[in-house]
């Protein structure tokens, strides 16, 4: 995420989850999350889904291999 959002995010995590940043790698990991955020944004922009809720378990059952 953007560098100026890292510290506020750390504070939000501390308030919501009670977890403090454990090490420098964790702090860097927050900064690196920009890539994942961009991927999620790209998916939203590129794919259209039916409104939820939908059931994964129902999809598993519906898509079973036809009997051989």
């Amino acid at each position: 995420m953007e560098p100026d959002l890292v510290v506020p995010t750390m504070e939000a995590i501390r308030r919501w989850a009670g977890v403090s940043v454990p090490n420098a790698a964790a702090r860097q990991g927050l900064a690196d999350m920009a890539g994942l955020i961009a991927e999620v944004e790209a998916v939203r922009a590129g794919m259209v889904f039916e409104d939820e809720p939908s059931s994964f378990e129902a999809a598993l059952a519906d898509l079973k291999e036809p009997a051989r």
């Binding site: 995010t9 995590i13 454990p22 090490n23 790698a25 964790a26």
Partner: peptide, 13 residues
């Protein structure tokens, strides 16, 4: 381990 706590931490964000 360092890599594990770092990875878990990101999940809270």
């Amino acid at each position: 381990a360092i890599h594990l706590s770092a990875r878990l931490y990101g999940g809270y964000a």
